[in-house]
Write a protein that binds this DNA or RNA. Structure first.
Length: 696
DNA sequence: GAGCACTGC
C-alpha cells in the first residue's frame, strides 16, 4: 500500500468555531467515579451500613462538576417557569437536576412529580437505576422509569424517567399532565419527532395550567429543556425567552485533523487512514463512522486481510463491524477488549454516535457521510440517501474520541468542506411522513394541526398530505375532526395504516393472522443476511416463502418459530434475528391486550382462506398498490410512479396482476418492500370511498 | 436482477 492520506490540524486562526473547541475540551470524566455506586448491591443494609453508604453517596454527588452550581440552579428553577439547561451529557445534569428539584420542594408526591424524557429506552432505564441508587431507594418507589413493555413506576414515584413516546401517550389519558409538576425534556438537541411534538404540547399545557391555576387544584407546570449543543438560543426563543443556564462538564480534549485534499473514495481513504494511525500512533482503539452496512462489511474484510500483511513485530488489527441489523451476539463483540497485541477497529454506522458507547476509543475517523431518511409529501415517497453530515453531527462524532482520555479525530474531508456543512441536521419533523404524528396531535386535543406551535414548522404540503391520508383512512371526517375510528386508531401503538388494518380485521375474521403479521412488520427485519453467507441465508429463507408474498411469508416464519418454541439455535440455523422476533412477540402480546380492550377477538382466524388477510391489509394500504403494466413493470395506483420490487422481497421477480406494499423508498430506484399479490378487483371493495373519488 | 441510517408507542 503506497497511498497516503495527508492530514493537517485545524487552522488555529479559524475563529468561527472557536466555541466548538471549548466544547470538545469540556470532555467529561465520569468513569472514574462510576464503579463506586455500580458496586452497590440490593442486599439489605443494617442501619450503620446504611448511614455510611448514604454519606458516601452524598459525598459522591457533591464532587460532581454540576454541584458547584446547585444553588444557582435551584434559584433559577424557583423563579422561572421555564429554564433551558445547556451542558454535555456527562455533566450530571440529567441525574442531579431532578434530585435538586425534589430537595428544593419544587416537586413532591403532594404537588406533583418530575418527569424526565429520553429519546431512547436504555437511557431512561439506566438513568432511573442510577438515581435510585444515589437516593438510596428501591427502584420503582421514589425513582422509577416507564418505557414500552416495562414500567417500574408507582404512585410513590416522584422522579420518573420515561421515553418521549411514553409521555406522548400519557397526554392521551391526562391532557394537562396533572400528575407532574415539572417536565424535563432531555437531549432536546437531537430533535426527534417526538421531542418536537412535546415542545409544542408542553408549552400549550403550561399556558392552560397557568390560566386555570387554582381551579380544581390545578397548579402551574414548570418546564426544563436540556440540550447538549449550542441551539439553546433557539429553545429559549420558542419558550418565551426562557432563561438559559450553562452547566460545565469536564471533558478531555480531542485534536481535530482534516485532510489536505478532498478524498474521492472515502472507503479507500478510511482504509489508508486506519493503517496510518495504526503504524504511527500509540495504543488505543479506532472508531470509524461509515454510512451503511455495505461499506462496513466491505471494509471489515479489507482491514482484516491487510492486517495479516503487517510486519510480525507489529501489533495486529482486528476489525469489528457495528450496525443496528447485526444480531446481538455479534454486536456484543465491540465491547470485548482486543486480544493481546491487537488494536481494535470498530467500523460503525451512526449507531455509535448516540446509541452505543464503546469503551477504549482514542481515535475517530469520520467519513463525513450518513444515510438520511427523507420524505417528499407531493409524491408521497420516502427516500434513504447518502448526505454529508451536519457540523453538530461531526462534533458529536469527534467527541467519541475523548470519553476516557485525550484523543484525535481524523476527518476524511477538508477544512473548507467542513465549513460548507449545515450547522444542524434537519429535524426529523421536517423530513418524514406525518400521518402518525398528526393523528396523535389530534387525539391529544390539538384541533388545528396547521396552526400548531411548532419549533420548526413542517411544510404545509407535508401536513396537508398527512391530513389527506388520515381522511382517506377514515380517521378524520369531512370537517377535519377525529372520527370514532380515528380515536380507536390513535390508541394503538402503530402507524395509522396498521391500526386501520388491525381494527378492520374484525370484519374480515382474521385478527389472529393480522396481529401476528403486523407484529413482525413493526420491528426491524426478522431476516438477517450477512454478506459472507448470502447464499445460505437465501436458501434457509426458501422454506418460509409463500407464493402470495411477504405478509404470508412472515406468517410462515412465525408458525415455524412457534413449532420450535422459539429455539435460539433454530434461529441461528435459519438466519432469523432472534432479538427482533422476540420484540415482535412482545408487540403481539401488547396488541392482543389493546384488541381485547375494544371488544375484538384476537383469536378469530380465517384458517386457510388467506386471501382474506390480504384483502384486509388493503383497507389500510389501498394507496400503496401498484398494477402490472404490459411491459412487465409495476406502476403505483396513487402516484403513477414506476416501482420496482425490492430484491429482498418474496415477490422479487414475480409478475402478478397487482401488488400491495408496506413502503416505497427511493434509494437507487423506487423500491417497494413488504410486498404481496392482490387482485385489482379487491381495490374498490377495500376502500369504496377512495376509489370512487379517484375514478370519477 | 440486486440491497436498508437511527429511534419510539
Amino acid at each position: 500500500m503506497k497511498r497516503v492520506v495527508n492530514f493537517q490540524e485545524q487552522d488555529p486562526s479559524a475563529e468561527e468555531w472557536e466555541f466548538k473547541d471549548t466544547k470538545t475540551e469540556n470532555k467529561k470524566r465520569k468513569n472514574g467515579h462510576r464503579e463506586k455506586f455500580n458496586a452497590t448491591t440490593t442486599k439489605r443494609l443494617d442501619h450503620a451500613e446504611f448511614i455510611k453508604k448514604k454519606e458516601e453517596m452524598a459525598a459522591f454527588r457533591k464532587q460532581l462538576p454540576i454541584y458547584s452550581g446547585r444553588e444557582a440552579i435551584i434559584n433559577t428553577l424557583q423563579t422561572s417557569d421555564t429554564v433551558i439547561v445547556m451542558g454535555e451529557t456527562g455533566s450530571g445534569k440529567t441525574t442531579q437536576i431532578p434530585q435538586y428539584l425534589i430537595e428544593a420542594g419544587l416537586a413532591s408526591s403532594e404537588i406533583g412529580s418530575v418527569a424526565v424524557t429520553q429519546p431512547r429506552r436504555v437511557a431512561a432505564v439506566n438513568l432511573a437505576k442510577r438515581v435510585a441508587e444515589e437516593t438510596m431507594t428501591r427502584l420503582g418507589s421514589k425513582v422509577g422509569y416507564t418505557v414500552r413493555f416495562d414500567d417500574t413506576s408507582s404512585p410513590q414515584t416522584v422522579i420518573k424517567y420515561l421515553t418521549d413516546g411514553m409521555l406522548l401517550r400519557e397526554i392521551l389519558s391526562d391532557e394537562l399532565l396533572l400528575r407532574y409538576k415539572v417536565i424535563v425534556l432531555d437531549e432536546a438537541h437531537e430533535r426527534t419527532l417526538r421531542t418536537d411534538m412535546l415542545f409544542g404540547m408542553v408549552k400549550k399545557i403550561q399556558k392552560i395550567r397557568l390560566e386555570r391555576q387554582g381551579q380544581d387544584g390545578i397548579l402551574p407546570l414548570k418546564i426544563v429543556i436540556m440540550s447538549a449543543t449550542l441551539d439553546a438560543e433557539k429553545f429559549s426563543e420558542f419558550f418565551n425567552n426562557a432563561k438559559i443556564l450553562y452547566v460545565s462538564g469536564r471533558l478531555y480534549p480531542v485534536d481535530t485533523m482534516f485532510t489536505v485534499e478532498p478524498q474521492a473514495d472515502y472507503l479507500d481513504a478510511a482504509l489508508v487512514s486506519i493503517f496510518q494511525i495504526h503504524v504511527n500512533n500509540p495504543k488505543g482503539d479506532i472508531l470509524v463512522f461509515l454510512p451503511g452496512q455495505d461499506a462496513i462489511e466491505g471494509l471489515t474484510t479489507l482491514v482484516n486481510e491487510y492486517s495479516t500483511q503487517l510486519r510480525p513485530t507489529q501489533q495486529k488489527l482486528l476489525a469489528c463491524p457495528l450496525f443496528a441489523a447485526l444480531p446481538p451476539s455479534q454486536q456484543q463483540k465491540v465491547f470485548d477488549p482486543a486480544p493481546e497485541n491487537t488494536r481494535k477497529v470498530v467500523l460503525s454506522t451512526n449507531i455509535a454516535e448516540t446509541s452505543i458507547t464503546i469503551p477504549g476509543i482514542k481515535y475517530v475517523i469520520d467519513c463525513g457521510l450518513a444515510k438520511l431518511r427523507g420524505f417528499n409529501p407531493k409524491i408521497g415517497v420516502e427516500s434513504l440517501l447518502l448526505h454529508p453530515i451536519s457540523k453538530s453531527s461531526a462534533w458529536q462524532r469527534t467527541g467519541r474520541a475523548g470519553r476516557e482520555a485525550a484523543g484525535v479525530c481524523y476527518r476524511l474531508y477538508t477544512e473548507d468542506a467542513f465549513r460548507e456543512l449545515e450547522d444542524d441536521t434537519v429535524p426529523e419533523i421536517r423530513r418524514c411522513n406525518l400521518a402518525a404524528a398528526v393523528l396523535s396531535l389530534k387525539a391529544s386535543g390539538v384541533e388545528n394541526v396547521l396552526e400548531f406551535d411548532y419549533m420548526d414548522r413542517p411544510s404545509r404540503a407535508s401536513l396537508v398530505r398527512a391530513l389527506e391520508e388520515l381522511y382517506a383512512l377514515g380517521a378524520i371526517d369531512d370537517h377535519g375532526n377525529l372520527s370514532e375510528l380515528g380515536k380507536q386508531m390513535a390508541e394503538f401503538p402503530l402507524d395509522p395504516t396498521y391500526s386501520k388494518v388491525l381494527i378492520q380485521s374484525k370484519e374480515y375474521g382474521c385478527s389472529l393472522e393480522i396481529i401476528a403479521i403486523i407484529s413482525l412488520l413493526s420491528v426491524d427485519s426478522v431476516f438477517f443476511t450477512p454478506s459472507d453467507k448470502r447464499e445460505q441465508a437465501t436458501e434457509a429463507r426458501k422454506k418460509f416463502l409463500h407464493p402470495d408474498g411477504d405478509h404470508l411469508t412472515l406468517l410462515n416464519v412465525l408458525k415455524s418459530y412457534w413449532e420450535v418454541k422459539g429455539d435460539i439455535e433454530w434461529c441461528k440455523e435459519n438466519f432469523i434475528n432472534n432479538r427482533n422476533i422476540k420484540i415482535a412477540m412482545e408487540v403481539r402480546d401488547q396488541l392482543i391486550r389493546f384488541c381485547e380492550r375494544i371488544d375484538m377477538d384476537p383469536k378469530s382466524s380465517c384458517g386457510s382462506d388467506t386471501d382474506n388477510v390480504l384483502k384486509c391489509f388493503l383497507t389500510g394500504f389501498f394507496q400503496n398498490t401498484a398494477l402490472l403494466q404490459p411491459d412487465g413493470s409495476y406502476k403505483s395506483v396513487a402516484g403513477s410512479q414506476n416501482v420496482k420490487i425490492h430484491p429482498g422481497s418474496a415477490m422479487f421477480g414475480k409478475r402478478v396482476e397487482g401488488i400491495l406494499y408496506n413502503e416505497l423508498v427511493f434509494t437507487t430506484k423506487h423500491y417497494v418492500r413488504g410486498v404481496s399479490a392482490i387482485q385489482s378487483a379487491w381495490l374498490p371493495l377495500a376502500a369504496p370511498k377512495y376509489f370512487n373519488n379517484v375514478r370519477s
